[in-house]
């Protein structure tokens, strides 16, 4: 095994590169963003589902909404309390949460996710421009 030193050096370099993002960002974690609600959202008090559920599952729920609306021509969502909502990102979600930059983007940026919603769906904050 004459190549021992090369192999070990190689492994060290690999590990260093592989873990680079971890130690590069060490101690620099940004604080979690605070969600900002619009007056309309505050007045409604509760979203279509409980806050905890929405935080964890809003993307899955939107996926199910799409499936129901596009494929099964069902457009109304009845939540566990019996309240009825139209299933529409553009017209229901963004109607209340018309502050996309503060509500959606802040958190998405923090989590470093770039959902492609906005390639098609339009932000309602610029409604009256």
């Amino acid at each position: 095994m004459n190549d021992k030193k090369w192999i070990i050096a190689g492994i060290v370099v690999f590990l260093a590169l592989f873990t680079f993002p971890l130690w590069y960002n060490m101690g620099r974690a940004a604080p979690a963003p605070e969600l900002i609600l619009t007056e309309k959202a505050k007045a409604a008090r509760e979203c279509v589902m409980p806050e905890k559920y929405m935080r964890a599952n809003h993307m899955q729920l939107l996926g199910q909404w799409r499936h129901a609306v596009v494929r099964n021509s069902k457009r109304e969502f009845v939540n566990p309390e019996g309240k009825v909502f139209t299933m529409s990102l553009s017209n229901t979600c963004l109607d209340c949460h018309s502050n996309k930059a503060d509500f959606c983007d802040k958190c998405h940026n923090y989590a470093s996710v770039t959902p492609y919603c906005w390639d098609c769906h339009l932000d309602r904050s610029k409604e009256n421009e």
């Binding site: 899955q60 199910q64 099964n72 069902k74 457009r75 109304e76 969502f77 009845v78 299933m87």
Partner: peptide
């Protein structure tokens, strides 16, 4: 499997005016 839905007590329906 997660796409198959959760047991969360909501329903999806056709609108009354549809």
């Amino acid at each position: 499997a997660s796409e198959a839905g959760h047991l969360t007590g909501y329903r999806m329906e056709k609108g009354k005016n549809a």
